[in-house]
């Protein structure tokens, strides 16, 4: 029994750590795609977030100190992420660009801008390590609960729990508020939404910019939890895993939360699995590819069919119907 708890105590906190940036970003993806805009650019939004988060952290640490810096960095990264995502909105909503291609451009643009400015500001290809990393703590009271406490609330990050709460908030907003109803209607049947007076394009702008807000936060959290600096490979594929979480979670906030947690477990196992007796003999490559293979299976329908919002990927042209 205690062996199992030990194993859980080593897997779950690290899985949670891996999952948190994915949860943030995937929630952004859910919002965008629910409004009918495909967001392949999640990777780029995370890159932008990581870049801004690291720069702000480096520049403001001396002013803000160690407790405030990471939070301010994340917030500014999220705001810049939202502004950056508005490019995707302008291209896809106003100028009816192909949403996938625009997303690909976002990914390139984010990396290009990030690396160009890093060279400009610091004169080298990567930044120094930040001082204001997010730090793990024991959550008061909750960490004293026997068994559950040490597994979930000891040595954990506040961002983990913010992510979980946020997933429920997004769920509430999407499914229980008028705003959410409008958002979904715009993604499912924009013409019907338009006919009852909903401003389709405005809703889509809001949704895409929210996805930038969350994606930027996710990228910053990733950078300030793991990498600690910004370079070409700080974000390498996390955005695409988040996208997988959106699909695997069937475009549902709680589903995305579950999928992101699951992918977090897979990632953490592929890193620390060699230390766990049962998993020692499984080559780590199987755990590495597990999230992707499972997403494919989910789409094919073996893990329950995933149904995208009906108007996903189609620009809304008023009066074209």
């Amino acid at each position: 029994m205690s062996a199992i708890i030990d194993v859980l105590q080593s897997i779950i906190p690290s899985a949670f750590m891996f999952a948190t940036p994915l949860i943030f970003t995937a929630l952004g993806g859910v919002l965008s795609e629910r409004s009918g805009i495909i967001n392949i650019g999640l990777e780029g939004l995370m890159i932008m977030g990581a870049f801004v988060g690291v720069i702000v952290n480096l520049e403001l640490y001396n002013i803000l100190g160690s407790s405030l810096t990471p939070w301010v960095s994340i917030l500014i990264a999220a705001i810049v992420g939202a502004l950056f995502a508005s490019l995707h909105a302008i291209a896809t909503v106003t100028f009816r660009a192909d949403q996938v291609v625009s997303g690909v451009a976002i990914n390139f643009l984010a990396l290009g801008i990030g690396l160009f400015l890093i060279k400009q500001i610091y004169g080298k290809g990567q930044t120094d390590m930040v001082q204001g990393m997010l730090r793990s703590t024991d959550i008061p009271l909750l960490s004293d609960i026997p068994i559950i406490g040490p597994i979930f609330f000891e040595n954990t990050y506040y961002t983990n729990w913010i992510a979980v709460i946020l997933a429920f908030v997004v769920w509430y907003v999407i499914f229980k508020t008028p705003f959410g109803l409008r958002l979904r209607s715009v993604g499912e049947h924009p013409f019907a939404a338009d006919s009852v007076g909903i401003n389709v394009n405005r809703m889509r702008y809001i949704a895409v910019m929210l996805s930038g807000f969350f994606g930027g936060a996710g990228g910053a959290i990733f950078a300030l939890t793991f990498a600690g600096n910004f370079y070409q490979g700080t974000i390498s594929g996390q955005g695409f895993i988040a996208l997988a979480a959106v699909v695997f979670g069937k475009w549902h906030p709680i589903g995305a939360l579950g999928a992101a947690l699951f992918f977090g477990v897979a990632q953490s196992l592929s890193v620390i699995g060699s230390g766990i007796p049962l998993l020692q003999n499984i080559p780590s490559v199987y755990l590495q590819i597990a999230p992707y293979v499972l997403t494919i299976l989910a789409l094919v329908g073996l893990v329950g069919r995933a149904e995208a919002p009906k108007s996903l990927g189609t620009p809304f042209v008023k009066g074209s119907r």
Partner: peptide, 25 residues
Amino acid sequence: VPHELVDIITALIIFFVAASYMIIL
């Protein structure tokens, strides 16, 4: 000039081609 500038240029070219409606307008 940092060579990453070209990544920005190519990304923008993709944007402009994708949003060709903008050019048409």
